[in-house]
Design a protein around this nucleic acid. Sequence first.
DNA 1: CTGGATCCCAATAGATACTG
DNA 2: CAGTATCTATTGGGATCCAG
Lengths: 138, 138
Amino acid sequence: MATREKSGCPINLSLELLGDRWTLLIIRDMIFAGKRHFREFLQSDEGISSRTLAERLQTLQDEGILTRGDDPTHALKAIYRLTEAGIDLLPVLATLGAWGSKHRKAEDKLARIADELAAGGEPALERMKTALRTEHIG
Amino acid sequence: MATREKSGCPINLSLELLGDRWTLLIIRDMIFAGKRHFREFLQSDEGISSRTLAERLQTLQDEGILTRGDDPTHALKAIYRLTEAGIDLLPVLATLGAWGSKHRKAEDKLARIADELAAGGEPALERMKTALRTEHIG
DNA sequence: CTGGATCCCAATAGATACTG
DNA sequence: CAGTATCTATTGGGATCCAG
C-alpha cells in the first residue's frame, strides 16, 4: 500500500490496511467459509471484481496477513493461507458481525452464528483460532 | 448512502456502512476524544476533508448512528451525539485497536489504552458504555 | 466565528476482455 | 486457473467560497 502513515493511533493503523469495502470480506471468507483459491473469493455474494481482488490479495500478502503458496495437488492453483496476524482478526470480524446482526437486519442464520460467537466471549474465539491454526497443516 | 444491499451477511451489512477509511475514525473521536463539533473532527491527526466529513456525518445520521442537535450555549454550533447503536460500536473499535497495537507498530501510549480495554473484556467495555451514555445528558 | 457547499482534479474501483 | 489490460464511472482530497 505504501501510503505514508497518517497517525500512530492503533485504530488508524488498522484502518489504513483494513478500512475499505473488501479487505475484511476476504478475511471473512477465509475464516468462516474456508476459502483458499482465487475463484472461490470471486464467487462470493458481494461480487468483488478480479482486479480489486488481485490487488487486495497482494497487499495482504505484503503486509503479512496471508501467504500465497502453490497447491501441491494442482500445479495451476494458488493457495492462500492466513498467518497468525490474519487469524488474529477473528475478534474484529466477530464484533463487526455481532453489531451488524443487532443493528442492521441480517439474515437469520448468519446472524445466529455471529451472535453465538460474540456471546461465547474469549473462550469461543480461542477455540476457533486453534481450529484455524491446525487446519493449515493440510 | 442508499447503496442496495449486496448480501445479508451481518459482516457485510456492517461493512456497507462502516467499511471505509473515515467512518470509524469519526466514531473513535466521539468515543475516545469526546469530540462533538464539526471543527473538532476536522482537526484530527489524520486530516479528513470537510467535504468527506459532511457526507459521513449525514450518512451516520441517516443510519441512526448519531444525532445532530443545536448547542444550547452557542446558537451557531451543531452538536453531534452517539445513539445507542453508535455506542455499541465500542467493541469493534476496541478489537480493531488491539489488533493494530499488536500487529502494526502503534504509539505506545495509545496502544496501552487499546490493550487495556481489550484485556478488560466485557466488564471494561460495559463500564465505558455506561459512561458514554450518562455523558449525553449534558 | 461556524457548519457546510462547490469546483477541480487525481486516485480508485467496476465491467469486460484477454493472456501465460 | 490466476491473474492483466483497458476503458470508464465514481469517489475523495484540497482549496476556496459562502450563508447564518
